[in-house]
Design a protein around this nucleic acid. Structure first.
Length: 420
RNA sequence: GUGUCCAUAGUUCAGUUGGUUAGAACGCCAGGUUGUGGCCCUGGAAGUCGAGGGUUCAAGUCCCUCUGGACACCCCA
């Protein structure tokens, strides 16, 4: 085997592509019930866009981006997440001038150069939504409910919604200093990894998976107790609204998002079914990003979710059987001389939108029947001398085994009526 | 980037302390007398044993390097 797909990438083969198509369509359907419209942005952007948008010192920008120089000497990057691109498009096309609130969603590949593991690929797929233009906590609530609704629409119930507020520029910085002091005092009890993080990103220490870190930070100050009045009210209102909307959630003061641009609301949807990579979706409010990227000061909320992780949960729960496309009719020939006739019949049916298949390998009738069975087609028509002479066709129902005889002229009608 | 385990037909796997032409199941192909699938029966095709190097009379089996995969850390979707 000479050529192989790149490490951490996967082919979606014909046997499974229909599942992706169906899942994507269902996601679209829920998005549309909330009146979000699809936006499609290029898979690569100027490197600076992500460095600026996501944050120079995040892991994503620091070590995970697929960055290259094109022949013109420009530094380009395969998008590691989609929000920055969406906001770029929002600003570039002045979407905010057309209407005060822009509600968009996306289903898109994303790229990060990490070591692959369960639920993590180098090219993976995200779906998500962004509502740009309102600071109303009702939008936060809508985004969270939208994300949750997508999972529910697939019959998935084994997930937990965790929400937090990471404050704004003012109260977060004050809190960070208080937290730093606390962490420095107990730093000898922390893991080496966490010790390094005290300066760079102290809030991340609270989110550590290390058992000892968890114990050591049990009495750590949580940001929820240090929010300014504005952030505090916003968070209280959000909880109130979610309760009114019958969205079940947990408040978790330790949630920190990996991207720098979040303000106020941060949330995660965690699967209780998956392994180590159990985050189905994450999101929150990012009131500073639009301005940061050169637009007007515009508040926004959004979420991003992993398509592969949704598929993993679906597979684990064996929730849904997605039907693959299949031919309704298989038209076989009894002998090769009838090939032209079956081509013609297939042509007629296809023109009417009836999916059908014929043999293209000069196979025996037995083989054709086997093929029809394997293709899971509903009906088989065998064309031979008899049919040509009588102008009548036998239609075999493959489920019941019964055969019905019709006039050749009624062929299309037969499949367009209740049988079709 | 770090760690652990792994790599043999299309797929899932056997393959003894190194020893002849590397096996099975499923799948695939063809048949089982006239023009009808599934079940069953018979036969067939199919492997550079991940790649490269080394040890040996002899390597799928032992050693090294690389590549890829699985899982975990880090981080995230």
């Amino acid at each position: 085997m000479k050529y192989k797909s790149i490490k951490g990438t996967k082919d979606i083969l014909p046997d499974e592509s229909h599942i992706w198509i169906e899942v994507e369509n269902r996601i679209r359907k829920v998005m549309h019930t909330y009146n979000y419209k699809e936006i499609r942005t290029p898979i690569f952007e100027e490197t600076k866009l992500f460095a600026r948008g996501i944050g120079e010192f995040t892991d994503i920008v620091g070590k995970e981006m697929y960055t290259f120089t094109d022949r013109g000497g420009d530094s380009l990057t395969l998008k590691p997440e989609v929000t920055a691109s969406v906001i770029r498009a929002y600003i570039q096309h002045n979407l905010g001038e057309k209407q005060p609130l822009t509600k968009v969603y996306y289903i898109s590949p994303a790229f990060r150069q990490e070591r692959p593991q369960a639920g993590r690929l180098r090219q993976f797929h995200q779906f998500g939504a962004e509502a740009i233009g309102s600071k109303n906590p009702a939008v936060d609530a809508e985004i969270i409910s939208l994300a949750a609704n997508i999972y529910e629409s697939f019959g998935i119930r084994d997930f937990v919604i965790k929400i937090n507020s990471v404050g704004c520029e003012i109260c977060r910085n004050e809190y960070k200093n208080i937290l730093k002091k606390f962490l420095i005092d107990i730093s000898n009890k922390l893991s080496p990894e966490s010790q390094k993080r005290i300066d760079v990103n102290p809030m991340r220490v609270l989110d550590s998976k290390d058992e000892n870190d968890r114990i050591a930070t049990k009495s750590a100050p949580l940001i929820l107790n240090y929010l300014c009045n504005d952030c505090k009210t916003h968070f209280a209102q959000l909880q109130d609204l979610l309760s009114f909307m019958n969205v079940t959630f947990e408040v978790d003061g330790r949630i920190v998002r990996g991207l720098d641009y979040y303000t106020k609301t941060a949330f995660e949807i965690i699967s209780t079914e998956l392994g180590s990579q159990d985050a189905l979706a994450g999101g929150g409010r990012y009131d500073l990003l639009v301005k940061e990227l050169g637009g007007k000061d515009t508040p926004a909320v959004g979420f991003a979710a992993g398509l592969e992780r949704l598929l993993m949960v679906l597979q684990k729960q064996n929730q849904d059987k997605f039907q693959a496309p299949r031919p309704k009719v298989f038209i076989a020939y009894a002998d090769k001389s009838c090939e032209k006739i079956i081509l013609n019949l297939a042509q007629k049916l296809r023109a009417k939108g009836v999916p059908c298949e014929i043999d293209l390998l000069n196979r025996s009738l037995k083989s054709q029947m086997r093929e029809a069975d394997r293709q899971n087609s509903d009906f088989v028509i065998v064309v031979g001398e008899n049919e040509v002479k009588s102008n009548r066709l036998n239609i075999k129902n493959m489920k019941t085994g019964k055969v019905e005889e019709i006039d050749l002229g009624n062929l299309e009608n037969y499949f367009l009526s209740s049988n079709g």
